[in-house]
Simulated assay, not measured.
Amino acid sequence: MASSDNPEVVERGIKDNDDKNEQEKGGFLDKVKDFIHDIGEKIEGTIGFGKPTADVSEIHIPCFNLKKADIIVDVLVKNPNPVPIPLIDINYLIESDGRKLVSGLIPDTGTIHAHGSETVKIPITLIYDDITNMYDDIEPGNIIPYRIKVDLIVDVPVLGRLTIPLEKTGEIPIPYKPDIDVEKVKFEKFSFEETVAVLHMRLENMNDFDLGLNKLDYEFWMSDISIGCAELAQSQTIAKKGVGYVDIPITFRPKEFGSAMWDMIRGKGTGYTMKGHIDVDTPFGAMKLPITKEGGTTRLKKKKEDRNEDDDDDDDDENGNLK
């Protein structure tokens, strides 16, 4: 009788029933979760929802000059899903040695087709003045390393918004125009009615990269009188921080120069101005660079076969006149 009145026996029986109910309930919920998970995996496997992938396929520099560089970043995006996915935003950043050069956001850049791929082009412009004004150690003529960081933000059904980060490194130039100087004017044929001469022009490449000279167009003045303009095909490479020479044929009428021509003949030299452009190839693409020289001074020299002999003073007498 005492044992039947023991409350511990009654309480233990109730606890066992509760544990059993909890186990049954837990087992049911686990089964439901497993069922939902299995169904989800089967739906995902059947319908094909998944994360899109992306990669920087190429970087172009279609145009760069003394002021800016236009950069196009090609990003190949692949969509494994059975429905199109919108490309919501593109965030980009270009930095050099951890310092920001330019950044921006491109909103609503289109849609990636179902089970397809698209090349998304990201246009970026680097303004050289902005860079050199921000960082004193970056100067015209330099080649600087860069890192491009791109975040693609897409909206995928079931998965929601996703961010795909991308990076690419490389080098980009900050070009500097060549320094020019017309060292001498050499006679081919001389008369006061018509003179044929050759301008011996010196080009100094101020850049940390080679310049492949292809073409030169110019306009030339002597004593404020325009001799004319022309285009000249050239083919030579001016090494980085190096010097190249170009011979430019000209024809002019000396009698139009008055006393300035007599000064040139006597070896005193005369002022000249030259403006034009050169078309060059670089390791980063083609460029059209301006060439300008104002207020220069040159003198006439008799033609010699050896350019080094022209540099001697043997042609001049003690008064500086041509012999």
Rank of each mutant, 00 (worst) to 15 (best):
P52N: 02
D55M: 09
V56Y: 04
S57K: 07
S57H: 03
E58Y: 12
I59C: 04
I59F: 06
H60A: 02
N65F: 06
K67Y: 12
K67F: 10
K68C: 14
D70M: 13
I71P: 03
V73E: 07
V77W: 03
N79C: 01
N79R: 00
P80F: 09
P84L: 07
I85F: 06
P86M: 08
L87C: 10
I88G: 01
D89G: 01
N91Q: 10
Y92Q: 07
L93T: 11
I94T: 03
E95M: 03
E95N: 05
S96D: 04
K100E: 15
D108A: 15
T109Q: 13
T109Y: 10
T109K: 07
T109P: 00
G110K: 02
S117W: 05
V120E: 10
K121G: 12
K121T: 11
I124T: 09
T125V: 14
I127Y: 12
Y128C: 05
Y128M: 08
Y128E: 05
Y128H: 01
M134S: 15
D137Q: 10
P140H: 01
P140V: 03
G141H: 11
I143K: 14
I144F: 06
I148P: 01
I148E: 01
V150K: 05
D151W: 10
I153G: 08
D155G: 02
V156D: 05
G160P: 04
L162A: 05
P165V: 03
P165Q: 12
E167I: 02
K168T: 06
T169D: 14
T169F: 09
T169S: 15
G170A: 06
G170Y: 02
P175F: 08
P175H: 09
P175A: 05
P178Q: 09
P178D: 07
I180F: 08
V182R: 01
K184H: 14
K184C: 04
V185M: 13
E188M: 08
E188W: 02
